[in-house]
Each structure stands twice: as C-alpha cells, then as structure tokens.
C-alpha cells in the first residue's frame, strides 16, 4: 500500500469569471522512503494539488477525487478536526518563501515547539530539548541561542532550515517540499537540498519535491511526474525520463535546459500555459506543440501505458520521434 495515493484529483476555484480548474484529474502515488519530484512551470497546478492533500486550500476551492488516501486513511471522509491531527504531524509541508513563512512575532523556539505541544503534548522542557535537537539536525550552529531568535534575525537559508526543523518536529511519514530552494541563493540551494535528502534518508520519510528546476530533479528525485496546465502529462523514473521523454512537453522542457543546448540559441517553448479563458478544447499542450495535428485539436488525448511513461498524448515520443504521427518530423511553432 502506498503512503500517499491520489487518483483523479480535481481542484476547482470559484473566481469572478466562473469556475477555474487548477488541477485536472491528477493521479499520483508516493511510497515510504521515496522521493517523487513534481515538475511543471508556474500555473501547472503542482502546488495546488499538494495543498489539497494538506487541506490548506482557501474556501473558494472545491476538491474532488476518486481516492485521496494517506497511510491507509481516506482523507476525504475525515472531519476537519481529525484531519488537523494528521497535518503537521504525519504529513508536513515546507514552503517556497522561507522569510515570509515564519511568523515575525514569535521566536524560532516557540514556532518549533508549537506542533510538539499540539500533537505530542510535550512539556515545556521537553519541547525545548527537542527543538534544540531539531535545530542541530538541520545544521543551525549554536541552536540553544537560536531558540530565542526572531525570524527577522535569520537569513533566508537559516529560515528554510528552521522551516525544515518545524516540518520534521513530529517525525512525519511524508514531507511535501514546495519549491524549497527557489527563493534562496544558488550556493544555499544545494546545501538545503542535500540536507533535505539526507534527513529524508535517515528517517525513511516519503518526500514530494515540487520544483520547476530540472537540475534539482536530476540530482535528487527517484521518480518524476511532469505536470502541465493542471494535468499530469507524464511520469517516469528519473533516469529514463531524462534519456527518453515521451511527452512532447517533457521533451521540450529538457531541450530548453542550458546544459543540453547545442545550437547558438537556447531553445524555448513558444507561447504560455493556457489560463482560465483560453483553454484549448482537447489537448491542452496542442497550441504550443510542434507535433500537433487536427486530431489533437478535436479529441482529448488518451493516457498511454507505462512503456510510454503514462504520457497524455496522441503521439507519444520514442527517442524523439512521435509514434503513429503522419509527419514525424514535426513543424516549427510560431513563437
């Protein structure tokens, strides 16, 4: 039984202009001790899907799913109170902006101790002891003194370490890290990732790493799920994904990596992710896809099997060539 099982997760937002579907039929599983990376550009619904798992979406969001199970418990049928007993204890989340994710009015010690008090009922001295242990584990020097520090006295990297300490406080089974390094300096990024992965290995926690950085994916993830406009469009273990992407979007993403560029100009994907009012009728990637045909414009693409990386595509690629495509060399899409 997987630790986290999501099938057909859909999230709709009520907006001024009607319903907006941010997550569209996403299915995922995460096992204990596994690192799953979710990649996709901004607006691909990757964060929203995970916020839905945590139950942190605003009231304007409607969450529906066939299964949304964590550790054998159906999250959809839990009362808010029962759910709060899981969140922050068995599943924890780390956010993108460490500097604004800590409450400026409370000390680091208080903010770490809070979940220890609420979930584990530790006494004041036990909380202090555990908080020192945690700060030490996330590599903060002089942890005893840092307990009384306020967030504005910490750097971004330090703040993210504190956030990791908060997430680890109750020894969770699953950690969701939502772009944990995006807001940090490049030098700090590697340190934080390393820390996150080493702690994850030690404690055998499941880790969901949301990112748009393919470099981060290559270095840390075991399995990768690629998202586009709210849909999961491909899922593969990390090595095969980089070697042989099956969805044209994944292929285009990888081709846009500076490390892989061969020509003088860096390849890019023309256009933008469709928004609320310009959603294509069938395949969502069709307007930006160099292999799109009339069929892609009229008929929703099928979900391919494991061999084709579960690609959501009429013409999944193998080694760069679309299977069953009338003009396999593709076309240039206008930028």
């Amino acid at each position: 039984m997987p630790l986290l099982e999501i099938s057909d997760l859909t999230v709709d937002f009520k907006t001024g202009g009607g319903q907006f579907r941010a997550v569209d039929g996403v299915s995922l599983t995460v096992d204990r001790g596994e690192i799953l990376a979710i990649v996709g550009e901004s607006g691909s619904g990757k964060s929203v899907a995970m916020l839905a798992v945590m139950g942190l979406l605003p009231w304007t969001a409607t969450v529906t799913a066939r299964t949304l199970a964590f550790d054998g418990r159906d999250l959809l049928t839990l009362t808010p109170r029962e759910r709060r007993r899981l969140v922050g204890k068995d599943m924890a989340m780390i956010f993108q902006e460490p500097m604004s994710s800590l409450n400026p009015c409370f000390t680091v010690g208080y903010q770490i101790g809070e979940s220890l008090k609420v979930h584990l009922g530790l006494s004041k001295s036990e909380r202090r002891q555990r908080a020192i242990e945690l700060l030490d584990a996330v590599g903060i020097p002089d942890p005893e003194r840092r307990l009384s520090a306020f967030p504005h006295q910490l750097s971004g990297g330090m703040s993210q370490r504190v956030m990791i300490a908060i997430a680890l406080a109750c020894r969770p089974k699953l950690i969701i890290a939502d772009e944990p390094t995006t807001a940090l300096d490049v030098t700090i990024q590697a340190q934080i990732l390393e820390l996150l992965v080493s702690l994850q290995r030690e404690t055998d926690t499941g880790l969901v790493l949301i990112t748009h950085d393919m470099g981060v994916v290559a270095e840390t993830a075991e399995r990768v799920s690629v998202h586009y406009a709210g849909q999961k469009i491909e899922e593969q273990p990390v090595a095969p994904l980089f070697e042989d992407p099956h969805h044209p979007y994944t292929a285009a993403l990888l081709a846009a990596l500076p490390e892989r560029a061969t020509g003088k100009r860096l390849p890019s994907i023309p256009g933008v992710v469709p928004g609320q009012f310009d959603r294509p009728p069938a395949c969502l990637f069709e307007p930006r896809c160099r292999f799109a045909t009339e069929r892609c414009r009229t008929k929703a693409p099928p979900r391919q099997g494991a061999i084709a990386g579960f690609a959501l595509c009429h013409y999944p690629l193998t080694h760069g060539r679309p299977i069953g495509h009338p003009h396999p060399e593709g076309r240039e899409v206008a930028a």
């Binding site: 969140v87 924890a92 979940s115």
Partner: peptide, 17 residues
C-alpha cells in the same frame, strides 16, 4: 493571506490558534 498563516495551518493548529 500571509504565508506564515498558511504555515500555522500546515502545523495542524486549530482555527482558534
């Protein structure tokens, strides 16, 4: 709407807290 309020909710704290 601040991030740290979301962090507080992510800790599983009660709405009152």
């Amino acid at each position: 709407g601040e991030d740290y309020v979301r962090t507080a909710r992510a800790k599983g704290l009660s709405p009152f807290r």
